[in-house]
Design a protein around this nucleic acid. Structure first.
Lengths: 337, 337
DNA sequence: GTGAAAGCGCTAACAC
DNA sequence: GTGTTAGCGCTTTCAC
């Protein structure tokens, strides 16, 4: 704490006095109203500069019922949030859009506090709206947030309702295309390491895998859940190898899980793609940092973040945007399959 | 946006009416005052429950001049913030402490918006205090934040002043111990990949390296800057290999940079530790996820986060904590040196 | 173009 | 133990 910190901040009243105008005029200047004479404008600007004036946010939002802040709520623990490049892209995308607006982003890693403090914070009018990504079937506090402020979901909501707004990628199709690629390469015993089945993304990619196999008349091979983490992917891979003859190809529903699986495969003395071919999902930086580099389904996470922010901003501006936006995935061929 | 969202939130006035008491009594209940009769308490609780009442944050903080929010400001770009496990630990530590308090954490990745919007947000009374980590010599907006709210720094501030509060690890000693270890293992041509010299942590670890060499009467070998990122570490390593006979040991000032360097060394057909021994810094999850696993200086980042939060909370509570806390590092022996 | 006045929802004396 | 009152610092009609 600096000694400066104790010096009380200037108020609009003081600025008005210094500029020789009324509160209203200062407010007009601060809020960019055109109905101010050049001389008053100049006087106010100088006073603001001199007094180092910044409008008090609490007072402003109490009066205007706007905060110009939006929340990003991530119901994950800190480790997973930071460990997965997916979130980095999402945040970058959101910020990219917000930088072209007056809104600031507040980040909440919700499961760190069991959701309670975060929930009441959001319900107390601290933000104008919220973006919620990565939510699980068990995250019931989400509904309480959605009852209080406009919400945009990243990914299909767990219990989708008609009035929900969300931006998703076509996960079923992505899972299907990845698996179909493996089939086209001649593989017949194709397993999968799925994401958590408590999350729509996990469920949908698994469904895509099944759709592709069914379409080709192939039987489903091993299915293991990997929790969207590198460690989870490694564990899943160990279980797969432990159960006997391994599949000759694997669709792994995230690059991070693929990285975990890759290390287990290497440790077992098997080669990729010769012994086991692998297609990942994300095309995050992880995909090119492993050996062999991953053939993977690219999902446009940065775009998804930007879209979500745009959608929420439109909502807050009173517009009526489309409820659902689905972005496409794309297969990126590298060395793992 | 759900239809529910348009239903106006209940006010303290409505709760008071429903409970048949005055505003003050409701306020007392909400703020946990003991001076309330059991019957009134019960009535108010029921009314709050029924009306789904959450106090309006703006109104509350306007009246009380407290927000019960603190900011974590990280002047890094999103990629680096998410890519380095160091930040994950810091955030976990801060949250661990905050969960035992009434405060919520607001995260600001400051360089995404050139610092302006963030700065005025923080200066507008939106938070009661701020924790600032990873700041660079070029981050001048920091001073404007520190002039408005109590600030605790993670790491020695760039321009340290007596009144500053901060929690740091003993980086000079850490760099010295790491290098001394290499010397003790018989290495004589010891280089370093340093962190950014615009950051105290980068400067201090480099100084530690120099102190150790001087104490042993050894000449300084190659010094390259790696920017605390994996890519930066890889680039630095390439420059080192390109300049001729390579050193036989390297102190690398972060595990992430070590990971980058390791991949370049492997690609060059050299072995670790036989051809080049390496000591990293952090003991982050990266240290055990690479091959060979890193011998590294452990720094207690989670503790650092917790300490910073405690310090700030004490400050906000009007206590007078010590200005500076220095945490110790510890050498963790693994396979890379 | 400008100012006066009311009020946003709450806390915090202060009286009873 | 409880209610009344006066703000907190701003925006926003509404006159002029």
């Amino acid at each position: 704490m600096t000694t400066d910190a104790t010096r009380a901040a200037a108020t609009i009243e003081e600025v008005a006095a210094a500029a020789g105008v009324s509160r209203s005029t200062v407010s007009r200047v601060v809020n960019g109203s055109t109905a101010v004479s050049p001389s008053a404008l100049e006087a106010v600007r100088r006073a603001i500069e001199e007094l180092n004036y910044v409008p008090n946010r609490a007072a402003r939002s109490l009066a205007s019922r706007q905060t110009y802040a939006i929340a990003l709520v991530v119901p994950e623990d800190t480790t997973r949030f930071f460990g997965d490049p997916f979130f980095a892209s999402i945040v970058s995308g959101i910020n990219a859009r917000l930088n072209r607006s007056d809104y600031v982003l507040n980040l909440f890693i919700a499961s760190d506090d069991r959701g309670d403090k975060t929930t009441s914070y959001l319900r107390s009018g601290a933000v104008d709206g919220a973006i919620i990504v990565s939510h699980h079937t068990s995250d019931t506090f989400i509904d309480r947030i959605a009852a209080a402020v406009p919400v945009v979901y990243g990914g299909r909501p767990v219990r989708e309702r008609e009035r929900d707004y969300y931006v998703d990628v076509d996960n079923v199709r992505g899972g299907r295309d990845a698996t179909t690629y493996l089939i086209a390469r001649g593989h017949r015993r194709i397993g999968t390491i799925a994401g958590p089945l408590t999350m729509p993304a996990g469920v949908d990619r698994l469904e895509g895998y099944r759709v592709a196999l069914a379409a080709a008349g192939l039987a489903e091979d091993v299915v293991e859940e990997g929790g969207f983490t590198a460690d989870g992917g490694a564990d899943a891979m160990r279980r797969i190898l432990a159960r006997g003859p391994h599949p000759d190809a694997l669709f792994i529903a995230s690059d991070l899980m693929a990285r975990g699986a890759l290390s287990v495969i290497a440790a077992a003395g098997l080669r990729v793609p010769e012994d086991i071919a692998i297609v990942g999902f994300d095309d995050s930086p992880v995909a090119t940092s492993v050996t062999p580099q991953l053939t993977t389904m690219r999902q446009p996470s940065f775009d998804q973040g930007e879209h979500m922010a745009s959608l929420l901003l439109d909502l807050l501006a009173g517009k009526h945007p489309r409820h659902v936006t689905i972005l496409e995935t794309e297969l990126i061929e590298r060395a793992s399959a």
